[in-house]
Design a protein around this nucleic acid. Structure first.
Lengths: 329, 329
DNA sequence: TCCTATTTCTAAATCGATATAGCCTCTACT
DNA sequence: AGTAGAGGCTATATCGATTTAGAAATAGGA
């Protein structure tokens, strides 16, 4: 590699061609001769030419960046880091970079989205924490700005997304508990306005009905709650329904808090009560006493989200990529 | 906000000034009149003017990006996500963006660094997993490229860093175990070529000597190892030294594996053996049976790293920011 | 009054890439 | 032979910001 970064100009001088010709040759434009294209490509490769991002961006408006917009306090466990790593892995070798725009739960979720769109600081956004009628999705669709959601909206048919099948999770969770003889089940669920909460509840309710047992819902608890609050909620529920012998949890942190509560109340996990949780990270099985788990494939989610985002940018005319992680148990 | 993004040209037209004048006024250049500066700033504020990053970058070479270079598989727990969130929080309101460049442990750690420097895709890099004579640090220093390390090198005097005081951690870990009556301690340590491993060992060794008890070192185990491998190592150590009654762990994942091993060997945690771990994330205390913990302030690390990176970019002449997280117990 | 400084601003060039328009040079057809 | 059309390039302008050089206007000094 030469000491100075090669530009189109460098290649133009070496080849004796004009700068725009070199540009068009590298971009495989139809009005450039085959011989010229080969020559230019060869010189470019030898020099290790890489287009200057600022130049491309200034001229075309394309940033070659995909922004991952994350609520920071969400999901205390490693979920987020895994997702990031999977997305990044998928973007290796593409011309895209990843850019993370975290925002605080106290902030308006629209703020980072507006910023990205207005300053055009990315070609696409990937979002999590999706509401059924998410205003961010509405905003982006109106403006025809490429995006992918991790989770489904009401309008999911028409936009790219990847989702964990929470209906299946709810069903499997209850089924597993039933198979261990549990009959008085409670599902600790996030607020119902979150789409996945309703899905979990639907799945669990169906399975409980099929098994002829009861399933209560303890509403509004997520991993964003403080640990003490979750514990308090669980304790209160157990006081009211002491016959409870199975708990389905939406998030790992919630499950851990539930287990801690059970322990402090002298319940024996695996004996007179069971807890079931999503396992997005392998360490959960190390937890003692052990809870039951349903596997969530976060790595696949990350890969899919990245692919879907890239396709949304490059081929907006194609049908949106949509994927579902259906847990098997 | 007007429908079109305002540029310097927009302001120039409104004010009747030339574009460079507007630019210099906004940048507080000495050769612009005070009255003009006030006028220009006022118009800019009214329009909600924000400099176009591509324009600035193309012209000046400054990217306004700080790249966080992370080994992806490192630290299975939430550490990484917290760090990201803290860094991002600290950069809110500055002109800097954060950009994450993950790399896989199998890759050459130099690769992402070279890429960033050669393509000038960031103004500074923040790195973790620091070796005593880290080649990345050598490379960046040679080229005068701004960077901050999370962890110290041999040359730490002369560059910005933030570090967790692993010597103190090793000392406190052993002291806590000794206070609980443990006399046969093992420290599970990462490979000695990692700086922090040696520090942990030094701290622990000193404390053990002071307490007049033994401390062995079980070398080369990190959270990058597979869970089964860690468990195997611990089991082997316990077979060789059955009198072991205290374990100091370098990482959370290691501690959890150690606890699992002890359990499978019928040891009772808190009774005939204790495990002590760094607690970078609050959930560790929920783990049962409970281990002892030493708090690591990851949020502070992230804030500090961001500040140090920004200062390295903006004021390279100032002495580098250096910080230490000294755990207290 | 004339000339030199100083202050304050403008003109032009530049960073790297690409879009648009247009210019040659052949070929092909009437 | 004359001309239209295609193929293959080049010239020029442009994205938005900043740097450099220089110009106009004002002030100060002899």
């Amino acid at each position: 590699m030469s000491p100075v970064k090669p530009t189109l100009k460098t290649i133009a001088e070496i080849s004796g061609l004009a700068v725009p010709t070199v540009s068009r040759a590298l971009n495989d434009a139809p009005d450039i001769g085959a011989r010229t294209k080969i020559l230019v490509r060869k010189i470019a490769d030898e020099l290790g030419y890489v287009p200057n991002r600022a130049g491309v961006r200034l001229r075309t408006g394309r940033t070659n960046v995909i922004s991952l917009v994350l609520s920071t306090e969400h999901d205390m466990m490693n979920h987020t880091a895994r997702l990031i790593s999977a997305i990044a892995g998928e973007m290796q070798g593409t011309s895209f970079h990843m850019n993370i725009t975290p925002y605080f739960p106290s902030d308006d979720p629209m703020k980072p989205i507006r910023y990205i769109v207005e300053t055009r600081s990315a070609d696409a956004v990937i979002m999590n924490q999706i509401l059924p009628e998410d205003p961010r999705v509405a905003y982006l669709r109106e403006r025809n700005f490429p995006f992918v959601t991790h989770g489904r909206t009401r309008w999911a048919d028409s936009h790219p997304y990847f989702d964990f099948d929470n209906t299946a999770f709810g069903r499997i969770g209850v089924e597993k508990l039933v198979m261990r003889g549990r009959r008085n089940i409670v599902m600790i669920s996030p607020p119902r306005n979150q789409n996945y909460a309703q899905n979990m509840i639907d799945g669990g309710t169906g399975a409980a009905r099929a098994a002829g047992c009861s399933m209560r819902v303890m509403q509004g608890t997520t991993s964003d709650n403080r640990n003490e609050d979750i514990q308090l909620g669980v304790a209160r529920h157990l006081a009211e329904f002491p016959e409870t012998d199975g708990i389905v949890c939406s998030a790992t942190a919630v499950a851990m808090a539930a287990v801690a509560t059970l322990e402090s109340l002298q319940h024996r996990l695996g004996e007179d009560v069971d807890v079931i949780a999503k396992e997005a990270v392998p360490f959960l099985t190390l937890f003692r006493p052990q809870m039951l788990t349903v596997h969530e494939d976060v790595a696949r989610a990350g890969q899919f989200l990245a692919q879907a985002a890239i396709q949304a940018v490059r081929h907006p005319e194609k049908p949106p990529l949509q994927g579902l992680d259906v847990p098997t148990g």
